[in-house]
Design a protein around this nucleic acid. Sequence first.
DNA 1: CGCCATTGTGCAACTAGTTGCACAATGGGT
DNA 2: ACCCATTGTGCAACTAGTTGCACAATGGCG
Lengths: 185, 185
Amino acid sequence: MSLPHAILTALLERPSSGLELTRRFDKSIGYFWSATHQQIYRELGRLEAEGYVRALPAEQPARGQKKRYEVLPAGRAELARWTSASQDPKPHRDALLLRLRAAAVVGTGGLKDDLRRHLELHRRQLAEYEEIERRDFPPGKDSTEDRLRHLVLRAGIDLETFWTQWLSHAVKELDGLPGAEDTAD
Amino acid sequence: MSLPHAILTALLERPSSGLELTRRFDKSIGYFWSATHQQIYRELGRLEAEGYVRALPAEQPARGQKKRYEVLPAGRAELARWTSASQDPKPHRDALLLRLRAAAVVGTGGLKDDLRRHLELHRRQLAEYEEIERRDFPPGKDSTEDRLRHLVLRAGIDLETFWTQWLSHAVKELDGLPGAEDTAD
DNA sequence: CGCCATTGTGCAACTAGTTGCACAATGGGT
DNA sequence: ACCCATTGTGCAACTAGTTGCACAATGGCG
């Protein structure tokens, strides 16, 4: 139940319209909390109904009209409450690990190619994060806000580093294995 | 849409009743694909209806009765198909990173304690994985199946290692920061 | 001027996962 | 013999996330 809080955070960083939010969710925030535009519009409606955000008044509130939202004090308070409240980690779900485990039973046929593909995707993501780090966090930028945001980015970088290493290892390991016995019935 | 495949994998490793499956999902498989007993029972019903598994016949098919399920050939084929089909990685969702980012805007009050708590949880999980590695994968156990399962376990170990390191670093960083300014309005 | 691709907003239906409860059988204690 | 805690199975309702579509405004192009 964190999408509303992700939106509040994004709106506090900068008041935006639904579409702008959607774009920003495709970058930065979306790296660890993704959302489609449909989710975002729906949630903006709810947040407005609850008095957490409001639409900045526009002359023409017609349909295909840009509506910018800003966070109200109640929204900021709610975000602060949520942020500091203790939360249990959600259980992981990783389909790739599950498939590898299944492959131990039904054979590794076909899986190897997909591992390679994932490796490539993670390499790309890692490169993107490193580019962001270079661009947004040059030495010297270390206000409190910068340090915290940098910390989040470091998590992304280290995670992608882990995945590229593990996947490289996995691919190598599968290459050394007997291979695709009983792939399908 | 992988719960049915997680269940098929578990049942191929060993035919089980709903409750046995539930227990095994609290260990091993559940480490990367968690499920509650309610989900499992519901899914077993579906898998049976689709002809992927069947209940081993018991004398008294009454209510509080153990029912053991086994995988049918169609189920194995479906699992093999799913395992080797290419799948895109699901977008991540990590509430802790989101909260950290929110904290850059609304202050870090309260968050630090929870980071420490999470650090402790990840340390415990890491220790558990390492114990499993010692117990189940002594040197020499390296059949194809063992190698694949070990690979999965390694992913778990490396992930928990990452989290403990990152969280240690994050806690240290927060300690050096001005602290809980505008925590709540 | 009219067409139509693009931008921006949104609803509705569906799927997956979670929470809360119910209830039968079993087996040990009194 | 009876109680009741534990084990095992399951339904129903709810919440969150995804997919598919719809439709208005804008602006460039023939």
